[in-house]
Design a protein around this nucleic acid. Structure first.
Lengths: 240, 240
DNA sequence: CAGTGGTCTAGACCACCAG
DNA sequence: TGGTGGTCTAGACCACTGG
């Protein structure tokens, strides 16, 4: 058994919801019935349902049942960043390819603030990468990325030009556990004007981000500067 | 028994971590030991630990144990919005009081886009509220709020001047299940300049938000315009 | 009232990691 | 290899909802 049972059940339920076997606003069969259907205990069904509740797809109420929510609203246009993935993959889903121009790629010893954010000391060399991400030759995001060298060996121009994340996932088999993000508005600076084609008084959306591995080790600190008229950040927070 | 056991255990573990009984980077006692100590089954301990993992406080690895992460980084300055709460409460924790100036308060039939976001039709009247939130007489956030009247009866000036959220929670016993948010940068408009004291070319951070009740019913749609130099949005996304 | 979901148990098996 | 966490079970009691 590779995948846990409750994961399998999550996939099946999601499939059924997508295929309108459980339409929006309808109720799922009771946990007891589902347990019987899948030949598992009720706790296992409960666990699967809990995950879907956390994702904002279902809603349970004691005494009445489990309802399918209208989740289509946040499923469509803007990019959901809750599930962590790079820009390439986000856009790839929509059939758009992202090109990257590498403006800088160097190795150096980290400054104080980078040390703090990546939880390393000055003796640990880091990569500093500046990339301009473009879609259909239109500048989109200007990204400043810092990663400890020892965690990401053999990083090459080639990888940077496509997606660092797929390299980490597929080649190095590294998986993230989560990310800390801070979002703010800022005034366009010299580089924004030069590379993002911003006008001098345009605002910019800056997303500062630290990505963590499963055991809490930071693997990336980055700042991305987004053109205000092209990109926003969308998220879904469910309680619990 | 009012609070479930696993909730109690969450509180106790959190307390112990805060008091350095389980210091950062140390390992918790095994689930078996904890189960024994609290006189509960291991599943109950596991459930408590799962919540703390989701909050980014702990990290478990099969075969080795459960470690306390350094979560202090995101615990301090900027406001965490994952746990949904109003501005008043957010600031209240830090001993700061928020004053509100009510710029508009009216009842009307909703426009098309509001209908869509609040999932109501044109026959359902809504409140439209515009408030300027201030701290120490400094303008901070300009908030446009829309709520269906039938979900929030007896909304008064008095409530608006303090906190709508504590009114909903404490008086009406209404609780949220989550929120959808979209964040973007924008140019300061006429009202931003007038009320937030923005300069003409200043950027503004706009947070668009829909808050949902437990069963997926939208109860609030709001836009807040934040001064770029004062307020950013911080969040923590953990996988699972 | 019957039926729902929320919690909890005592034990079980497994996959993984350290020594 | 022994101890860890991840999963799963079969049953139980409770709180809540609806008719």
């Amino acid at each position: 058994m590779k995948k846990p049972k409750y994961r399998e059940i999550i996939d099946i339920l999601q499939e059924r919801i997508k295929n309108n076997i459980y339409p929006i606003d309808s109720f799922l069969p009771s946990q007891i019935d589902l347990a019987e259907e899948f030949n598992v205990s009720r706790m296992t069904i409960k666990k699967a349902i809990d995950v879907l509740i956390l994702q904002g797809i279902l809603s349970s109420k004691r005494g009445s049942g489990t309802k399918v929510l209208n989740y289509s609203f946040w499923e469509n246009d803007t990019a959901l960043i809750t599930e962590y993935e790079g820009l390439s993959k986000q856009m790839g889903k929509r059939g758009v390819t992202v090109e990257s121009e590498i403006l800088h790629f160097e190795v150096l010893f980290p400054e104080k603030d980078i040390q703090k954010r990546l939880k390393i000391d000055i003796t640990q060399p880091i990569y500093k990468i500046v990339r301009l991400r473009m879609i259909k030759n239109e500048p989109y995001v200007l990204e400043y990325t810092y990663m400890p060298c020892h965690l990401v060996p053999h990083l090459s121009d080639d990888v940077l030009r496509t997606s660092v994340y797929s390299y980490l996932h597929n080649e190095l088999n590294i998986h993230f556990s989560g990310a800390y993000r801070n979002i703010k508005a800022a005034k366009a600076d010299h580089n924004d004007i030069k590379y993002l084609n911003c006008q001098i008084h345009d605002p910019v959306l800056e997303v500062e981000q630290i990505i963590y591995l499963k055991d809490g080790i930071p693997i990336e600190y980055s700042k991305s500067r987004n053109r205000f008229d092209i990109r926003g950040y969308t998220m879904l927070d469910m309680e619990k």
